[in-house]
Design a protein around this nucleic acid. Structure first.
Length: 535
RNA sequence: GCUGGGUUCGUAUAACGGUUAGUACUCAAGAUUCUCAAUCUUGCAAUAGGAGUUCGAUUCUCCUACCCAGUACCA
């Protein structure tokens, strides 16, 4: 039977979505789109104790920023989104809103002998657990121990129904079969076999809050939502045998989805998985968007740190997957075309912050000058520079009034975009193209602003004041260098002196470029300022 | 501890039994320039260890080491 490809990303709203989670969502999305199927966002909020306000909204917004748009699921306002609603009435997509459906499935398992009622209280279990620990053993609720505990397998029918009626802290547990080899297939890892004797009797449903645990909700929802492939994190691999057993117990083996378990993202240095701490410590984001927790502590986000979503997504895609050739730059559309589960790496991938920056730099270069200018304008304004006019308006600037025209900004962007990794770098690279330097780098001044140098620099400037040719970088550069060379003055010293006066430092953009932007009047004014301030 | 998964330059990865083990990031050197970037060129640098199978193992099998995950009425 040919089934429409349907995959889901099923995060738990217990905090902000981590970049590893975004990668899982991305791979799901790529797989779905490549197969012409649906990508579903399901919120797994069956743990009422760990709910974090705002987390669900964060997840939705983060995916949206990345361009990973669900075909079905909940949107930012909690509304149901279902583009294929005619075909698939699968709502709601929040498990807390589906709570009514799970109990019957759990009871069905009990009726068929695949599960049982357990009446052990949390305290009782805690007691046997610590008793076992005292003996140097580990307690597991399994085929060995279940017959000595309080459950519907050991109690009489009367006692069982009485407890079901009168108590509220019972659970339904899966009755893991004895000594059975579960043979499983993973799309990434291949064939895996596990003996059920190493597994335990997992809780499927809790009477106390009338909610299923992950395992039950997951299988039931994947079945009802007609999921064809489950692509999830490696942390779920140990519970795959249980999930296989559940599909079997329900009689759903025919439509059981295929599974792919993704390796985890690891920290850049040392061992272990990537955590929020690593980012704080090493100065890179681990979250797609900025997040402020209940204590008011803020965590960096790729978006707020100036990463382009395309670069972030591209970088994430290449972390644990490759196209089989040397290509590295992929749009989302190209990723959909090129993606394949066979090329997904089995081992965990250490995240490399340098490479993330490299991706952003590449994407910055691909952007048009106008697009970058539009992104740069708010940063200029934040630094007190007013941007006026439009792209069709003439180029102008008035440094005294802290005002420049949009086309002037565009010119600057075109000149310096190759030097930048982030849009915000434009400002730090060349603030002096928007305002005269207020101070001069002490070390550079000490090195170059010596009488034998600046007297020559001033003479060169004087010469340029009288220059009447076209004021372009090329012409100005030719004239200035020709003049210095003709006098056989030391080029480096004179030029660095000029740069110091014009930009406040001896290293930076080419003199001719700076002059072409600021103009002759500003040139003169900055030279006079330098003389006044540096002597 | 037990169970499962994993292991190619520092990092991400290529090489689906036969290559001087390739590419990108990082780093270093050189070229270029008035400086700094950018760019170009060059360089450093890896098959975890040990057995086996084979004419031949990065690739297949086993053992060891190390890493990761799970071991909850959390997902």
């Amino acid at each position: 039977m040919e089934r429409r490809t349907r995959v889901r990303f099923a995060p738990s709203p217990t905090g902000p979505l981590h970049m590893g989670g975004v990668r899982t969502a991305l791979y799901n999305y790529l797989y779905a789109k490549q197969h012409g199927g649906d990508f579903i966002l399901r919120i797994e909020d069956t743990d009422s104790h760990r709910f974090v306000p705002g987390a669900e909204e964060y997840i939705i917004e983060a995916l949206k920023w990345c361009g990973i748009v669900p075909d079905e699921g909940v949107d930012k306002d909690g509304k149901v989104v279902e583009t294929a609603s005619e075909r698939h009435p699968h709502a709601p997509y929040r498990q807390s809103q589906r709570r009514g459906i799970y109990r019957a499935y759990a009871e069905q398992l009990v009726a068929n002998g695949y599960a049982y009622y357990a009446f052990d209280s949390a305290e009782e279990l805690e007691a046997v657990r610590s008793a076992a620990e005292a003996r140097g053993e580990t307690f597991t609720y399994n085929q060995k121990s279940r017959m000595s505990l309080r459950n519907s397998l050991t109690l009489s029918a009367e006692e069982t129904s009485k407890l079901l009626e009168e108590t509220v802290n019972w659970t339904i547990r899966f009755k893991m079969p004895e000594n059975t080899v579960v043979a499983m297939d993973d799309m990434i890892r291949g064939h895996i076999e596990v003996n059920t004797d190493t597994l335990d009797d997992k809780v499927l449903w809790k009477r106390a809050d009338e909610l299923p645990t992950y395992h039950l909700a997951n299988i039931v929802d994947d079945h009802l939502m007609e999921i064809t492939e489950v692509i999830r994190g490696e942390e779920w691999l140990p519970s795959l045998p249980l999930h296989y057993m559940l599909y079997k117990a329900f009689g759903w083996e025919e439509t059981r989805p295929r599974f792919a378990h993704l390796s985890l993202l690891l920290k850049p240095v040392g061992n272990g998985k990537l955590s929020k701490r690593d980012g704080d410590k090493m100065g890179f984001p681990v979250f797609p968007l900025r997040w402020v927790n209940a204590e008011g502590e803020a965590s960096h986000g790729y978006r707020e740190d100036g990463y382009f979503p395309e670069a972030f997504v591209n970088m994430l895609a290449m972390l644990g997957w490759n196209p089989g050739d040397d290509r590295e730059l992929f749009s989302l559309e190209e990723l959909i075309q090129a993606f394949s589960m066979e090329k997904v790496q089995k081992a965990g991938a250490k995240f490399n912050p340098d490479k993330a920056k490299w991706f952003n730099k590449e994407y910055l270069r691909m952007k048009s000058d106008e697009e970058l200018t539009d992104l740069f304008v708010p940063i200029l304004e934040a630094n007190g520079i007013e941007v006026t006019g439009c792209y069709k308006c003439p180029v102008s600037h008035d440094f005294a009034a802290h005002s420049v025209s949009k086309n002037y900004v565009k010119g600057v962007v075109a000149l310096i975009k190759e030097r930048a990794t982030f849009v915000a770098d434009f400002w730090t690279i060349a603030p002096y193209l928007f305002a005269a330097p207020k101070e001069y780098v002490e070390k550079d001044a000490a090195k170059f602003w010596k009488e034998e140098n600046y007297t020559l620099a001033l003479k060169a400037a004087e010469h340029m004041y009288g220059y009447e040719g076209p004021w372009t970088a090329e012409a100005v550069g030719e004239e200035l260098e020709g003049f210095i060379r003709g006098n056989e003055w030391p080029m480096g010293k004179v030029m660095n002196c000029l740069r110091l006066a014009l930009s406040g430092a001896s290293s930076g953009l080419g003199i001719a470029d700076i002059l072409s932007f600021i103009g002759k009047d500003e040139f003169r004014s900055r030279m006079e300022n330098a003389v006044a301030q540096l002597g």
